[in-house]
Design a protein around this nucleic acid. Structure first.
Length: 249
DNA sequence: AACCCATTCAACCGCTTCAAT
DNA sequence: AATTGAAGCGGTTGAATGGGT
């Protein structure tokens, strides 16, 4: 049964519409401020979070006295006020890592940022769009909504979590690869985290050419009690074996 | 000095996922 | 199992800024 919200009187099709419509209404009702943050607002938020900790951002926005939405507070803290945020231009090493990881992962900004200490997903995304996109657009790989970096049979958003847990049963087609060893783990930055990625090229009438990758049994990606990992599917062949394996761990 | 245009990046929006109930 | 609220993600927007004329 589809429930209705009294403030709108319109059937809500799913939880997402419920959620953001409520947030919007709540912000309207509280005359939530938008736009750039002022230094005094930063100080209030910083003081509050340092005293009470992160999380429960709706409460933070109310109790701190800030006329900001919870999302805005969270974003400001995460992208700007949080300790250890590194500001300023990217080093050549960071830039190189972004390029390589984007080649592998596409627009998975939070995953890429996770490998760059002190950098946020927003910063990496902006840097890519303003500095790197033009130079490297020919190799661009986007996320599933519009593109080709995806895990077999699921939304790309779930891939990272699947990579961490790897508990689901893979699709039957992933069971018969004649694997070519892409990487033996010997060149990893951290050999203890290495994993053996194996891959194969596939030709499909509906998809055209694609590359399917899996990992060995010692990898965190491997499914306990099975002989295979969940497959990762890309439009392009992985280009940097040591890094491509590295980021999967 | 005034205007225009391009670039940058902080912030917002729409949506998904997850955990708690 | 269904519902709810919070957190998180990627795409997009628009204000600020700088350079050129």
């Amino acid at each position: 049964m589809i429930k209705q919200k009294k403030w709108e009187g319109v059937p809500l099709a799913s939880t997402f519409s419920r959620n953001w419509r409520f947030e919007r209404e709540r912000m309207k009702a509280r005359a939530i401020k938008k736009g750039l943050w002022r230094p005094e607002e930063d100080a209030i938020l910083k003081q509050y979070v340092e005293a009470h900790g992160e999380g429960n951002w709706a409460v933070v926005s109310q109790r701190s006295g800030l006329k900001r939405g919870g999302k805005s507070c969270r974003l400001r803290w995460k992208n700007y006020l949080r300790p250890n945020i590194k500001r300023g231009g990217m080093s050549p090493e960071e830039e190189d890592l972004i390029i390589r990881m984007h080649k592998l992962l596409g627009n998975r900004w939070s995953l890429i940022a996770g490998r760059l200490p002190g950098r946020t997903d927003n910063e990496v995304k902006n840097y890519w769009n303003t500095h790197l996109n033009k130079r490297h657009s020919s190799h661009r790989r986007q996320t599933i909504a519009s593109n080709g970096c995806r895990q077999e049979g699921e939304n790309i958003r779930t891939t990272a979590k699947a990579a961490n847990t790897a508990t689901e049963v893979p699709s039957p087609q992933s069971t018969t690869p004649p694997p070519a060893v892409v990487h033996d783990g010997s060149n990893d930055l951290n050999p203890t985290e290495s994993t053996t990625m194996t891959g194969r090229k596939e030709e499909r009438p509906e998809d055209g050419e694609r590359f399917v990758y899996g990992c060995d049994m010692g990898s965190p990606l491997a499914i306990p009690g099975s002989n295979y990992s969940r497959p990762f599917v890309f439009d392009d062949e992985l280009l940097v074996p040591w890094l491509d394996s590295f980021v999967f761990v």
